Amino acid sequence: MVRRDVGILHPGAMGARVAAQAVAAGATVWWVPEGRSAGTRERADEAGLRAAADLAELAGRCRIVLGVCPPAAALDVAARVAAAGFRGVYVDANAVSPQRMAEIGALFADGTVTLVDGGITGPPPRTAGTTRLYLSGDPDAVTAVSALFDGTLLTPHPLTGPVGRASALKLSFAAYNKISYALAAHASALADAHDVLDELRDLAATALPGTPLADPEQLASAGPRAWRWEPEMEEIDRACEGAGVPGEFARAAAGTFGRWDAHKDDPTVTADRLVAELRHGPGQDGNL
C-alpha cells in the first residue's frame, strides 16, 4: 500500500469525523495540537490522528491538506498553509462563497499548491449514506482527494468544472436547509407571542412533518450550531450578490443565528429557549 500522509486543519466536530474516514481508509492523518482546546485534542485522539509539532512540520509531511473550519476562518487558515511552504493539494472544504474561493486561490497563485474546492453536506459522517463531499477543480487533484475516502462513510462526489462549483452547490443547499430553521424559529416566535405555539406545532406535525417547525427537538439542534451558521449565512449573502440574487433571506437568518451565539456546542438548549430569545433578546427567557 502506498503511504498517504494527509493533514487536517482543524479537527472540530466535522473535521475530526472527516479525518477519521481517511484514517479508516489507510491514510496517516496529521494535525497541529498547538493552541487547540482540550476538546479538540480529545476528538483528534479518538479519530486516530498524529500530532505534528507545528504547521511547518505538517506542511512538509503531507501531500494533501484538508481545511475544515468555520467559514470565517477559511481565508486565514489557507494563508497560514501558504506561508508554511506547503507543496501539494490543498482542499478547502468550508462553507464559503465562490468569491471567497477565488480569494483563497489567489494565495496559491504561484502554482506550488493545487487548490481543490470542497463542499460537505450532511452531518459529521457516522452512518453510511448521510454525508457527501463534493469536489471541483483540477481533475487529477480531485481524483486523488476522492480516493482518500473511497469505501468510507464520507461519500466523495467529483464535479466537472473549476474551483467554485462545489462551494456554490454547498451554499445553495445550505440556503434552503439552514434558513428553514430560522424561518421555523420566526414562525414559532410569532405563534408564541399570540399563545398558539402548541397549536402551530400540532398543525405542522400534520401539514409539514419532519420539519423544524413540526419538531421542537429538530429546531433546538440549531442552537449549538448557530455560531457556525451565522458566518455561513454571510457567505451565502455574498454568493447571492455575486449571482445577482437578493440576499435578504440570508442576512436575516444571520441575525437570527447571531442571537443564539451563547449556546455554542450546548446540547441542553431547548426550542422554547431559542424562541424566547428570538422574541426577547439573547439571554432572555421570557419567564419560561
Rank of each mutant, 00 (worst) to 15 (best):
F249L: 12
L219R: 02
I236D: 05
R238K: 10
A253I: 04
P212D: 11
P216D: 07
G258P: 15
E234M: 04
W229C: 09
L219C: 08
A220Q: 03
A252E: 15
G242T: 12
A222Q: 05
A254G: 14
D237G: 09
A253P: 02
D261S: 14
R251A: 08
W229L: 10
T256Q: 04
S221I: 01
A254H: 10
P209N: 11
P212Q: 13
W260F: 15
R228N: 00
A239G: 06
E232H: 04
P267S: 04
K264L: 00
A243C: 10
D261H: 15
G258V: 13
A204L: 11
T211L: 05
R228D: 00
E248Q: 14
A220M: 02
F249V: 08
D265M: 09
A222I: 14
A253Q: 03
A226C: 13
F257A: 05
W229M: 09
R225D: 02
D265T: 07
A262I: 00
G223M: 12
D265A: 14
R225S: 01
A226F: 09
T256L: 09
P267C: 05
K264Y: 00
R238F: 02
L208M: 12
L213G: 12
W260P: 07
R238W: 06
L219Q: 05
E217F: 01
A204P: 10
F257D: 03
E232L: 07
D215Y: 08
K264V: 00
A226K: 12
W260C: 05
L208T: 14
A252H: 14
T256I: 04
P224L: 01
F257G: 02
F257L: 03
T206F: 13
I236H: 06
A226G: 13
K264N: 00
P246K: 03
D215P: 05
T211M: 03
D266L: 08
G247T: 13
A243F: 13
M233A: 08
A207Q: 10
A254Q: 04
P216K: 08
L213K: 08
L213E: 06
R259Q: 08
G242W: 12
G255K: 14
P216H: 07
E217Q: 04
P267Y: 03
E235F: 03
C240K: 07
V245K: 09
R251F: 04
A204I: 09
E234L: 13
E235P: 05
A220N: 03
T206Y: 15
E234P: 00
W227G: 01
G244W: 12
A250V: 06
A262T: 01
A252W: 14
E248G: 09
